[in-house]
Amino acid sequence: MLIEVVVFSAIVALSVVAFTAVAQKSIYLSRQALRGAQAAFLLEEGAEVARLVRDEDWENIAGLDAETDYYPLFADNAWTLSVSPSVVGIFTRKVNTESVNRDPSNDDIAETGTPDPGTRLITVTVSWPEGETILSKTLSFYIMDIFI
């Protein structure tokens, strides 16, 4: 009799622990989905800020240092790229730029070649804490001086 009770109890306890683990995982996943959606819009906004800054004056993009992190700052109904770190709620958003080279033979973007002063590679990164870890989303795109 005793052994049956012990086996039954073990099955019940394990099932309950498994259900609880699934329930806690569901909270984590749904929270992560919400944060992911918020981060996706912040990424999109970062890309639009780069576009707006380019539309104001290409020199705003061409003058950015490749080694520096820039943080989009909204003040007085205008967007600027500031070197002072800023956060949006729990999210940190930064913008980095890289110069772009073109292959002289076909004018395609290449690892090495002739530097193109009218094109920059923009990388927007949004990161946020999730428990003990830091999660992040990244968006990279080329931006060009189309108003020459």
Binding site: L34, F41, E44, E45, E48, V49
Partner: peptide, 9 residues
């Protein structure tokens, strides 16, 4: 609550 931000050209 949850905040959403976006800027669109």
């Amino acid at each position: 609550s949850a905040d959403f931000y976006d800027t669109v050209v």
